[in-house]
Design a binder for these strands. Structure first.
Lengths: 255, 255
DNA sequence: CGATGGTTTGAAGCGACTCAATTTACGTGG
DNA sequence: CCACGTAAATTGAGTCGCTTCAAACCATCG
């Protein structure tokens, strides 16, 4: 059996045991494909499952009364959509495929079992979830306090940073399958102003665009310019509980 | 031994076993008091602990390069500060007491043990954390897409809603120990504009102010007016794993 | 009872929005 | 392989919500 996406992701933070790896792979059985643009599920819809991204980009969003859309988060390979449905019977947001996508569908109860059988993984997932929460906080701050130029620069740096963890992105260029409207819906600007801000970014020479490919010429300098903090590179695992407590009766008796 | 704050909080969502209650109480041993305004720890500071709020209000915030402050979250009785320090060795934000406060300090490793000994609680905490994440997303949306009037109305409704869960708040009035500057730092407005928006809120007759006491005259109507969704009332627990898996070797052998 | 921090009000300026038109890119069918 | 149709990107002009700057008012407390 080959490595699973979630397994690969978690391996970045922890040396996984065989049993843990096995449990993660076991989650990723029901695979489904969606072409770009597919609306996977809608805000408010009843949903029994979580999804692990196998490939492609997605985003979650909410729609306001006036039809305006707020994109809350982008999902990349190895991400889990826990936030959307773990706390309620109905989804807190709409999930839509940005590019062609494959997802692994897992019943919420299986996710729950993971906490029981592999508490260390449960705690690690909690830590990752916390890091994502901080990351949302960063974007909130960005939207709340900074201008269009900075918001977009921050978004680009953040996406690049996440793709690095996830895609082994080597260079500073990456494909951005988003329209300027999408970008605006993510950072709280109109498409008109997104366009102007992108132009301003190019004018500094720190960002180049060619079609949908974006290259950040000098990541460090841009990061300094807009006061960007990378939240995705490392997370603390020193506090996690001992491995595999519940899975092995033998081990358990010794304790 | 009397009920602990976290225990009370989690009881709202789940019938806890004796062992679970005991474990939660055991976490709340090291209690410390802080007068209003105390800076508990600063963004970037190394920190080994989590904190459970025993009483009072606090907030977490980050400070931008230009000195601007963004308040990310308010903490009330029974809340845990996991987000700030669980994912890194250094705090992601500054924690400050708004009113006189008591906190229970718990080492991160004890929190980790909870996942091993009481996986159901770990999963529940995960779900609560997810609901908070959605709540932050709501505020992001509010700041990103709505005007001052709506942002502040939404903040007031949100605070009231959380105090209800936590404080058994009966009426529609509550004390708001925040300056207008604080409110502005939370919703992304200047104190000048906060003042004007508050006036506008009063002018509708839906909100009354008397010193630091705020009364929402007609909660439902205001909620409808600003399209507010309550995220705190209930959370789904049907997916949680079976109780107490790892704590009892005897039970474990049976499995 | 002065001092300090918070609230309130006024006036002017700007960043981002709205409205609108034009150009460019791209997928599809002939 | 080109013509066409539609979506996206680009650019311009006018407007408005919120900010900035500034000053006056008010409450609480040592």
């Amino acid at each position: 059996m080959s490595a699973s996406q979630l397994e690969t992701r978690l391996s970045h933070h922890l040396d996984l045991t065989f049993a843990e790896r096995d449990a993660l792979r076991w989650l990723e059985r029901r695979e489904r494909s969606y072409p770009a643009g597919t609306l996977i599920f809608h805000e408010g819809e009843a949903i029994e499952n979580l999804y692990i991204v196998g490939s492609g980009w997605l985003h979650s969003s909410v729609t306001l009364r006036d039809g305006d859309r707020q994109i809350l988060r982008f999902y990349f390979i190895g991400d889990i959509t826990t936030t959307l449905s773990v706390a309620w019977q109905h989804s807190a947001a709409t999930l839509q495929a940005v590019s062609d996508t494959t997802l692994f569908e897992i019943p919420k109860a299986h996710f729950g079992d993971l906490f029981r059988k592999h508490p260390r993984l449960g705690a690690l997932l909690f830590a990752i979830s916390a890091s994502e929460q901080v990351s949302i906080g960063d974007r909130l701050t960005s939207i709340s306090k900074t201008d269009g130029f900075t918001r977009i620069a921050t978004l680009l740096l953040d996406i690049r940073s996440r793709l690095r963890v996830v895609d082994n992105l080597e260079g500073s260029a990456f494909e951005l399958p988003l329209t300027q409207k999408d970008i605006g819906d993510a950072v709280g600007l109109t498409k008109t102003h997104v366009n102007r801000s992108l132009k301003a970014l190019e004018a500094t020479g720190l960002v180049e665009r060619d079609g949908r490919v974006v290259r950040i010429t000098d990541v460090d300098r841009l990061a300094t310019l807009v006061d960007f903090r990378d939240r995705h590179a490392v997370i603390a695992t020193d506090w996690l509980p001992a491995v595999g407590a519940a899975v092995s009766p033998v081990l358990e008796k010794v304790t």
